[in-house]
Design a protein around this nucleic acid. Structure first.
Lengths: 234, 234
DNA sequence: GAGTGGTCTAGACCACCTG
DNA sequence: AGGTGGTCTAGACCACTCA
């Protein structure tokens, strides 16, 4: 399945994982320090360090200076989740992508929007609602608020052809983001737009993106049948 | 918010990210190689390597030997998602945890179960259904299949007191796992168990865990109002 | 104060890939 | 064939934090 990893730090990482699995190193216990491990593995300390660092990033062990490295008792499952760009997601399934703009409004931020975008004073915001189709079937409904204080350029963009998703990736790339996933029943309007029945379960993704200080956009994505998959390998 | 990172590779990583944001290094373009970067930053190549490696892991750049390092055009959003152990999740919200066993049956695997657990021949499997409460309110309904071929010890465990979740964490820790998230409407039975209305939107997590070769468990978790949060920092 | 992990360096060899 | 990233080493200094 996976290509053979012959690098030394990988071998060491796997070996340490084995020992933890076999209870040779019990949960909660401290494992030998880097110097001792490097001696027993016959490698340099840096190599052991990399193995242990990656295990710590995976949540398998905890490390603290002076204290040492300890096996985490009940590690929470952690894994990398990838949320693709809608168009690519649809196209990778072999479907034809189409985009429709439903609304594009500029207005002063209302109380709740001001809070969502963490605006300190009232300011103009851009409200965009749109639909993404896969083979002419509604795939995702997008409801987005953009702070014009943070992205003034967005004022001149019509979003007729380009979806806000892609426009922002082009114009404000690599923002920090927070995602919250949940399930909710489709409202009448959502059902009409997505061509499903009211009450049908929707997979909802709320995304907030920001640059150093300013919150830039808040978006809610509604998928009727969407699933997210993630694989974690120890 | 975040502690100041004064380490050299962090500084370099941030600087490279800045240059990509500022379009100094355009999407799709190759950036200078490690030797050149280490000269311009006045550091060793290993330090640049670590910065670039982490950016590659974050999906910001792509690296190939001989070719070099290229800025990814439209990086898919990636982030680390943490799925805590139910009990810890509930207790961390300040609620009281309680567990109830609904069913514990040993039977030969039916066709579909055999497929789910990737069993090559018919074998006994353990079916466990249970409920997790937060402050006496149903919080999660769990429907799990355990391969007794892979975990024979489970045959002697009653799961009266300990939930299969925690029992497995204790007895078969650190398994590889695959998660699939989706939304679905509650069936009549699910609604009754979770004390909600039929049709209410449920957040569903399907988890498959395995060790080197054998699939060990398949579990479906149904949350009425559950949300998962994840934060990605560039 | 002292032990541990966190990081950096200079140099080296190798694996992989592209031209 | 040659350039690039991937990794390793030995030694070093530093930062953190526990006792």
């Amino acid at each position: 399945m996976k290509p053979l990893q012959t690098s030394s730090f990988q071998t060491i990482k796997t070996d340490i994982l084995q020992r933890i699995r076999n209870r040779e190193w019990q949960a909660g216990a401290y494992i030998p320090n880097e110097v001792e491990l490097s001696k027993s593995y016959g490698c340099s300390r840096v190599t052991v360090n990399r193995a242990l660092r990656e295990l710590a990033e995976a949540g398998i062990v905890e490390r603290r200076r002076k204290a040492g490295t300890r096996v985490v008792s009940q590690p929470a499952r952690a894994a990398n989740l990838v949320i693709p760009i809608v168009r690519k997601d649809i196209e990778s399934r072999g479907a034809v992508y189409r985009y429709t703009l439903l609304e594009r409004t500029i207005m002063p931020a209302a109380q709740d929007v001001q809070a969502k975008l963490a605006l300190k004073e009232p300011a103009d915001v851009l409200h965009v609602r749109c639909l993404h189709y896969a083979d002419e079937t509604p795939y995702q409904y997008e409801d987005r608020w953009i702070s014009l204080l943070a992205v003034p350029k967005a004022r001149d963009e019509t979003f007729d052809e380009t979806s806000p998703n892609e426009w922002l990736v082009e114009n404000e790339p690599l923002l920090d983001a927070e995602h919250v996933f949940s399930a909710q029943n489709a409202t009448d309007e959502q059902a009409r737009l997505l061509d499903i029945r009211p009450g049908d379960a929707l997979f909802v993704v709320k995304r907030r993106t920001w640059s150093t200080t300013r919150t830039i956009t808040v978006v809610k994505l509604y998928h009727p049948g969407a699933t997210f998959q993630m694989i974690s390998r120890s």
